[in-house]
């Protein structure tokens, strides 16, 4: 199997989807730019033409509405936002329209739309160029939310998102784009709502999203070596629908639960997962649930502050140790 980069895996998925289904088209800022979306769209406009792969003006609200409308007319648009921060202009179309349409009209028409938003944090970019908004998206009924962490899942989840028939929010991180992994050449799906165990362990369950899966694995190796703590790392891959069974069965084994999500803590993914564990896994818990997240503050610019703002494997190690001591 070929080993390719995360960004190339997305590129492959888009290529194959565009090739297979004439209803698929790709729009958003930067799809024809050499750098804007991290090389994920290289070659697509040359192969599929400017009719089906086109850059849009900075009109997020209108463009999103147009994508929703096209989906209602039977197309399967993939709409990219080079940064999630730029998506707030699109919220009305996404939340009031795309996410509600199928329910609001009694299930007559669906919105087969993939909204692909890229987290692009760090680098002293500050508060408006760093946000991770998975929790806000997860909050909305009628929206599915996936967060791949490997090249394999990057491709498989993109295929599932585009072919699902519902509005699916696909969130990935620029920090993953250079990572490499095995990716089958043919088209395949990674089911929505199915998580995976990335590392088996018996002492504590660490559930991490997106890039933080890599940090969690790093933390797990260090904890095994230095502290003899055996961490099970779980990657939910899609946070909505969520693979509750996987989380609960792991918790049943370890009795300890840490959620790692690099977004604001209050009302975050960690809050939701903790609530699930508290209500459905209470009897398994040997220690309080712990969260690794961003503090409840906007992203600062100065790299000195960024260093304490963004969690790393070290932050995870500290939290896991606190949990295990109990």
């Amino acid at each position: 199997m070929a080993v390719i980069q995360f960004s190339q895996a997305i590129n492959q998925a888009l290529y194959q989807l565009l090739e297979k289904d004439p209803e698929v088209f790709l729009i958003g800022q930067g799809v024809t730019s050499p750098w804007y979306v991290g090389g994920t769209t290289l070659g697509l406009v040359d192969r599929f033409g400017a009719e089906r792969v086109f850059d849009t003006p900075v009109s997020e609200n209108g463009v999103t509405g147009a994508a929703v409308g096209a989906a209602l007319a039977g197309a399967k648009p993939v709409l990219v936002f080079p940064r999630l921060d730029f998506m707030y202009y699109a919220f009305d179309q996404l939340i009031n329209h795309a996410a509600n349409w199928h329910y609001m009209f009694g299930g007559q028409l669906s919105v087969p739309l993939t909204i692909w938003g890229i987290v692009n944090r760090g680098g002293e970019q500050a508060a408006q160029h760093a946000q991770s908004i998975q929790a806000m998206m997860m909050h909305v009924p009628g929206l599915k939310v996936v967060m791949p962490s490997t090249p394999y899942d990057a491709k498989g989840l993109m295929v599932s998102a585009v072919t699902d028939g519902n509005p699916v929010m696909y969130i990935d991180e620029r920090w993953l784009y250079q990572t490499k992994g095995e990716v089958p050449e043919e088209m395949y799906k990674v089911p929505l709502g199915k998580g995976v165990v990335r590392r088996e362990g018996s002492d504590v369950t660490v559930v991490a999203t997106s890039y933080m899966v890599l940090e969690a694995l790093k933390a797990a190796e260090a904890l095994a070596k230095e502290e003899h703590i055996d961490v099970e790392v779980i990657d939910p891959r899609s946070i909505k629908p969520l693979d509750k069974q996987l989380l609960l069965s792991s918790l049943k084994k370890t009795g300890r639960f840490v959620v790692v999500d690099a977004a604001w803590q209050t009302g975050g993914v960690g809050a939701e997962l903790s609530a699930i564990v508290a209500s459905e896994g209470f009897d398994y818990l040997k220690a309080p649930v712990a969260r690794v997240s961003l503090p409840d503050a906007p992203a600062p610019s100065s790299s000195v502050l960024e260093k304490v703002y963004y969690p790393t494997s070290k932050t995870i190690i500290k939290k896991v140790k606190e949990t295990v001591v109990r």
Partner: peptide, 16 residues
């Protein structure tokens, strides 16, 4: 430079 003496105290950077 991301310094505390900056006009936004190092929180904003060039864009803020």
């Amino acid at each position: 430079y991301g310094k505390v003496t900056g006009c936004s105290r190092g929180r904003g950077g060039s864009m803020h």
